[in-house]
Amino acid sequence: MTKLSSKKDNPKVILELRDVVKTYTTGNTSFNALNKVNLSINQGEFVSITGPSGSGKSTLMHIVGLLDIPTSGEVLLNNLDIAHFDEKKLAQIRNVTLGFVFQQFNLLPKTSALENVMLPLLYSDVPQHLRRDLGVEMLTKVGLADKLVNTPSQLSGGQQQRVAIARALINNPKIILADEPTGNLDSKSGSDIMAFFHQLNQKEGRTIVFVTHDRDLANEADRIIIIKDGQIQIEQHPRHVET
């Protein structure tokens, strides 16, 4: 399998998986959710991961997101093998390097949009007196400057997901990981969110990795990784795919 080069000239690998195996054991039976996966993601790339359900795309996402550690193999973030870091160190890396966007938004209920956005700062070294300003700036960026004090239940699905994106951005992460970010949204809000991801990718050069089972959405990426039965089947440039 040959890796496709990024469209950018001097691609710098930001995240790399080498021979990653993830095995789940239930009783006597064990099951390889990921089987010798090799993958590298370049800085500034827009990558989609797709595949049928049960293919291992969520597991792959969790490994990439440092939420789970592989049974064997290496996970290199900026050429640093983090596969065997302890939970405290991993949490710190997640805090400053990664931004998560979930299908379920995962906003804290009964808590204002601003406070939701500021949540990651609780676990960061960002000085206290700047936190509020940062939160306001992020919400302004996602177009919700007028919804600072609204709680999630007072916001539409699309607005909630934009709050979640603001939250993902607040620590200025290099990589945004999105797990079915449009899965709970109507098509209009969904395409707004996708457009916003493109903007983050193109204007700010952020690396975006998103998981979707929707092939049309997957095609919007620079590169599609199709996974099946725990192995990467195809890595392709969408322009080479006939849709």
């Binding site: 997101g65 939420l67 939970e87 805090n95 995962n106 804290l108 990651p120 609780l122 676990y123 960061s124």
Partner: peptide, 15 residues
């Protein structure tokens, strides 16, 4: 879920 989220965005176990 809130605990999961907090952990995902950087809360270490002792936090």
């Amino acid at each position: 879920r809130e605990i999961g989220l907090r952990k995902a965005i950087g809360a270490y176990p002792n936090a």
